[in-house]
């Protein structure tokens, strides 16, 4: 995909560059982040390098570094991008403890969702969340996602369309006062 540079809600989203992947690998391997992932495999430098090359050559996914006031704070991604179905799967995490569990995760998620709906023309976003991850379930529901399916392993499927997203976003974005 073409390089992305998108700024909203005080957050800069820019396509992940090769000199940033080691920092991201260390974030991703930290148990506080890895424990939230569907795939919890430890990622070696070689695995990260190979993933980065595949990712940059792919047309259906993009990974971005999220910055707040110039400081790298996390990773945001759009995967399974389907231009025919106009759908994709957003993903994100925030690394510094002092930026987690407050308004910053919403700022990153809203920037990512706006990018998907407005810039890429997506009509439906999908998410997969373990039921036991109650913070993520609450976060997605507060962002307008609705649960539409689940399985016995406790993994639920959620989707977000633009109209409920805009209604949900309005309730929280009013507190973003940069």
């Amino acid at each position: 995909m073409d390089d992305i540079h998108f700024n909203r809600y005080g957050i800069d989203l820019t396509s992940l560059q090769s000199d940033e992947i080691e920092m991201v690998r260390q974030w991703r391997n930290d148990p506080k982040i890895a424990s939230l992932m569907l795939d919890q495999t430890y990622i070696t430098e070689a695995m990260q390098q190979a993933w980065f090359i595949r990712m940059r050559q792919s047309s259906n996914q993009c990974y971005m570094l999220a910055r707040f006031r110039g400081e790298p704070i996390g990773v945001a991604s759009l995967t399974a991008i389907d231009m025919q179905q106009r759908s994709c799967e957003p993903g994100m995490y925030i690394y510094p403890d002092h930026y987690r569990n407050n308004i910053l995760p919403f700022c990153v998620a809203f920037a990512l969702n706006d990018l998907a709906f407005e810039q890429l023309g997506m009509q439906r976003l999908y998410g997969k969340i373990f039921d036991e991850n109650t913070a993520s379930v609450r976060f997605h529901e507060a962002s307008g996602y609705i649960r539409y399916d689940g399985n016995e392993a406790g993994l639920s499927l959620y989707m977000l369309e633009q109209e409920p997203y805009l209604a949900a976003r309005a309730k929280i974005a009013r507190f973003i006062r940069y």
Binding site: G10, H98, Y99, R100, N101, N102, I103, L104, P105, F106, T134, A135, R138, F139, E141, A142, I172, F175, I176, R177, Y178
Partner: peptide
Amino acid sequence: PQWDSTAHMLLIARMEDEFGVMLDTDDII
């Protein structure tokens, strides 16, 4: 665990309503 991002924003909304203030985003963070 109850103090997650969603609860934080509910807390901020309740605080602004209850005390009649408009908090800077930096203060929310």
